[in-house]
Design a protein around this nucleic acid. Structure first.
Lengths: 226, 226
DNA sequence: GACTCCTGTGAAGGCTTTGTGAACGGGATG
DNA sequence: CATCCCGTTCACAAAGCCTTCACAGGAGTC
């Protein structure tokens, strides 16, 4: 369960963003100005902060700097100026990603997810992967969907693991073969189809209309995001 | 063919590492100090950098920070202090992996391979093309116009992708065929027209008066530039 | 304004890709 | 050595998609 602090002075935006983030499974806290953001961050220790740079009063960049004093919480910035965005990310400021106004809430959610995933991988262990109500526990090699335990063979598990690491990204059969075997050659790509079928049979409530493992015609497969 | 930049002031080490990396099929470049590393990185744009933190003069961490200003090239660090290593990786510095001196060249090669593989899979970020309010997400194979998701077939996606990579440039039907099929021969060029029509139907608010996919009479098609 | 060439469009055929059940063979287990 | 489990392969059916064609409508040229 991840917590996100959203900092924006416009009520419409905070409400919209909150709804989308909550729908994506996050706990959301709100702050509407710089001092409030710093206080809230100190108190609730969010896993990530979404920060509008166009705050009145205290400058958004100062807020980040203050946060950085005693925390390295990842920050996703909302900015109105696209030309400025590239400069902000990865430079002295230390934001982790950005979206440009007007932005789609979906995109913001995607970026929040991406940043958290990146941070997880960089830290020691993304040992338990989650995507929606799908939980993949790497060290235990256990999978649960909607709380229901699912029993997979070794290859099936590795295949699903690969997809869950980047929900929404489309993998070709060649990439999936490589993820499973280390090398892509020497194998009939249609073997992937067979594994997908078998995973679906065990995982999907309705294997005929998959909810998790999505076919991308002519390309490969992906895990449904959200 | 991947290029690795090795940065170390000890000639024995660079030579050893170079031999092993070359033997593993990499093209290897060498730098022996911080400024040289930054210059070399800028010029040859390596796929990965192996960096000894124990450089004289400029601190190794500063080198990474400088590199990060305009690149997210993965970095594998060589360090003498094991206790420091964990802190370096994934934290404020942004190294991708490390080996501790004395290290085995084999292990270094293995880590270089692992990092490159991870980065390949994690191709987030740079692979999202934008042109105005049109967003083409390559790894996800998703297209959004004005925030609205658009569902395209494989060929349609590839066609649009080609146009979005160079907004404003006019492509002939032959060029577009080639972009789609790898080869331009053996195909009726009018098939492109059909695809354009189908994309417009899904993408354009008013397919009769296209805003994105512009016809250049007698030549071909282009994407409207922002 | 007339003529010609080019492009837009809808429908249909045929091909490619995917879903699926079954069978084969290898490796592990007992 | 017999058995079981699993990964792969195969064949066929179903679904999705690309191409093609014919005709209508525009654009460009003189």
């Amino acid at each position: 369960m991840r917590t996100v602090l959203v900092v924006d002075d416009e009520l419409q935006i905070t409400r919209l963003v909150r709804d989308y983030l909550e729908h994506a499974g996050f706990v959301v806290a709100i702050a509407s100005d710089g001092p409030g953001a710093i206080a809230a961050a100190r108190q609730i220790k969010p896993d990530l902060i979404v920060l509008d740079l166009g705050l009145p009063g205290l400058d958004g960049l100062d807020v980040i700097r203050s946060l950085r004093v005693n925390s390295n919480v990842p920050v996703v910035v909302i900015t109105a100026r696209a030309d400025e965005a590239d400069r902000i990310v990865g430079l002295e400021i230390g934001a982790d990603d950005y979206v440009v106004k007007p932005f789609s809430p979906k995109e913001l959610v995607a970026r929040v997810r991406a940043v958290l995933r990146r941070v997880d991988l960089a830290g020691e262990g993304a040992e338990v992967l989650r995507a929606g109500d799908l939980v993949v526990d790497i060290p235990r090699r256990e999978v649960k969907a909607s709380g229901r335990a699912v029993d997979l063979t070794p290859t099936e598990f590795d295949l699903l693991q690969t997809l869950v690491r980047q929900p929404g990204r489309v993998f070709t059969r060649g990439q999936l073969l490589e993820a499973i075997h280390g090398v892509a050659f020497d194998s009939y790509e249609r073997a992937i189809d067979a594994h997908i079928k078998n995973i679906r049979r065990k995982l999907e409530p309705e294997p005929q209309r998959p909810r998790y493992l999505i076919t991308v015609h002519g390309v490969g497969y992906k895990l449904a995001d959200a």
